[in-house]
C-alpha cells in the first residue's frame, strides 16, 4: 500500500479523446450553418455541426455494430444523434478552461429533447480537431439537476462528466435504454398542460378558477379589455424561499380563434393580498426548443405583468418561464 499510496494518474487526463476533422466535415458544416439570422448563431451552428460530425465519426469507429443517424434538431449549442436505440445529445463548446459545460434546460427537461447521453465536445476550429471531454447519462444529469437551482441553462461542472468514453460503449452493449431514460414520462417532467382540452372543459390539477384566487383586498382580475371572453384559469407559482410567502399567480386566458387556432394571454399577478409584484421578475414565452420569443420584466410597482397576446395552431408546444434572480420555474403547454 505504501508503494503506491494514492491513485494519481487518470489515464484519460494524459491522453485526451481527440478526433481529427477532415475537409468534408468543414464543407458540410459550412453548408448546413448558412442562412442563420445572426453571425453568432451561424458560428455556433457551425461549431455544433463540427462537434456532431466528430462524435459521429468517433462512434462509427468505436461502435460499428450500431446504426447511427443524425437528427435534424440543432439549436443553441446542442445537436442530436440516434445511436441504435439510444439518443445522444452533443454539446459544443470552444473553451473548457472554466470547467463548466452549459446545457440548455430544454434539452434535458423537455421530454422530446431529452437524450440518453450528453457528450461534451470542445471544438478546436483552427487546429481542425475536436476533443471529446466526457459524457453524462441522462439519469446522472437528472440527479445533479435536482440539486441545483433551475436556470434557463444548466451549468454543469466539467468534472461531473465521465471521462471514460469507454463507458458509453459499454452502456450501449449491456444496458437497457430505459434504465437510463425512462420511456414513460416520469413525474419529474412537468406536465404539459393541454390548452385545447380547456375548451372542452377539461382542466389539469392545479389550474383553478379565478374565484378561488380572489380575496376581496387582492387586486386580482384579468382586467384588460381584450380578455372579457374566453376561458380563464390560474395556477399558484412558488418560486421558493427568497420571495418569502410571496406566491405568484400565473393566469392563462384562452380564446378560440379562426383556422383551428387558439389565442393565448398570459399574465402574472401577486397573491396573498400583495398589491405589487416584486421588481425584476421576468415572464418569458419560450419556443419548444427553448428560444425566448417574448419577454417582459416587472418594474418597481407593477400590479401585474403580461405577455403580448399571441395565437397558435392546435398542437403547438410552448413554455412560460417565470424568473427572478437565479430562480426560475418553467410551465410547459401545448395548444
Amino acid at each position: 500500500m505504501l508503494d503506491n499510496p494514492v491513485k494519481l494518474t487518470n489515464f484519460k487526463l494524459l491522453l485526451s479523446e481527440t478526433v481529427s476533422m477532415g475537409e468534408k466535415s468543414f464543407e458540410q458544416a459550412k453548408l448546413m450553418s448558412q442562412h442563420n439570422r445572426s453571425e453568432a448563431e451561424q458560428w455556433q451552428k457551425y461549431l455544433n455541426y463540427l462537434a456532431l460530425f466528430g462524435v459521429e465519426g468517433w462512434l462509427t469507429q468505436r461502435i460499428p455494430e450500431l446504426p447511427i443517424n443524425r437528427e435534424s434538431i440543432n439549436f443553441l449549442n446542442v445537436s442530436y444523434l440516434k445511436l441504435g436505440n439510444f439518443r445522444v445529445c452533443v454539446i459544443a463548446t470552444e473553451n473548457v478552461l472554466d470547467e463548466v459545460i452549459t446545457i440548455p434546460q430544454s434539452s434535458i427537461k423537455n421530454p422530446e429533447l431529452a437524450a440518453h447521453f450528453y457528450i461534451a465536445v470542445e471544438v478546436l476550429e483552427e487546429a481542425e480537431e475536436i476533443i471529446i471531454r466526457g459524457f453524462l447519462r441522462y439519469d446522472e444529469l437528472q440527479n445533479y439537476c435536482h440539486q441545483v437551482n433551475l436556470l434557463e441553462y444548466y451549468q454543469i461542472p466539467l468534472e461531473k462528466f465521465d471521462l471514460e468514453l469507454n463507458h458509453l460503449i459499454l452502456y450501449c452493449h449491456y444496458v437497457e435504454p430505459s434504465a437510463i431514460l425512462p420511456v414513460i414520462k416520469s413525474n419529474f417532467w412537468e406536465k404539459t398542460t393541454k390548452l385545447s382540452q380547456w375548451v372542452q372543459g377539461v382542466f389539469d390539477e392545479g389550474w383553478l378558477t379565478l374565484e378561488s384566487f380572489i380575496s376581496p383586498e387582492a387586486n386580482l382580475a384579468l382586467s384588460t379589455r381584450n380578455v372579457t371572453t374566453g376561458i380563464k384559469r390560474g395556477k399558484l407559482i412558488d418560486l421558493g424561499m427568497q420571495l418569502g410567502r410571496n406566491n405568484l399567480a400565473l393566469l392563462v386566458n384562452i380564446t378560440e380563434e379562426a383556422e383551428n387556432k387558439l389565442g393565448v394571454l398570459i399574465q402574472l399577478h401577486p397573491t396573498h393580498g400583495e398589491r405589487y409584484l416584486p421588481a425584476n421578475l421576468q415572464l418569458s414565452l419560450l419556443s419548444k426548443s427553448g428560444k425566448v420569443l417574448q419577454e417582459v420584466e416587472s418594474r418597481a410597482q407593477d400590479n401585474y405583468i403580461q405577455l403580448k397576446h399571441f395565437k397558435g395552431e392546435v398542437g403547438v408546444y410552448f413554455s412560460i418561464s417565470v424568473k427572478i434572480l437565479n430562480l426560475s420555474i418553467v410551465e410547459n403547454f401545448v395548444l
Partner: peptide, 9 residues
Amino acid sequence: QKIDNLFGG
C-alpha cells in the same frame, strides 16, 4: 495535470 489536460490541442 488537470490544467495541462484542459488546455487541449
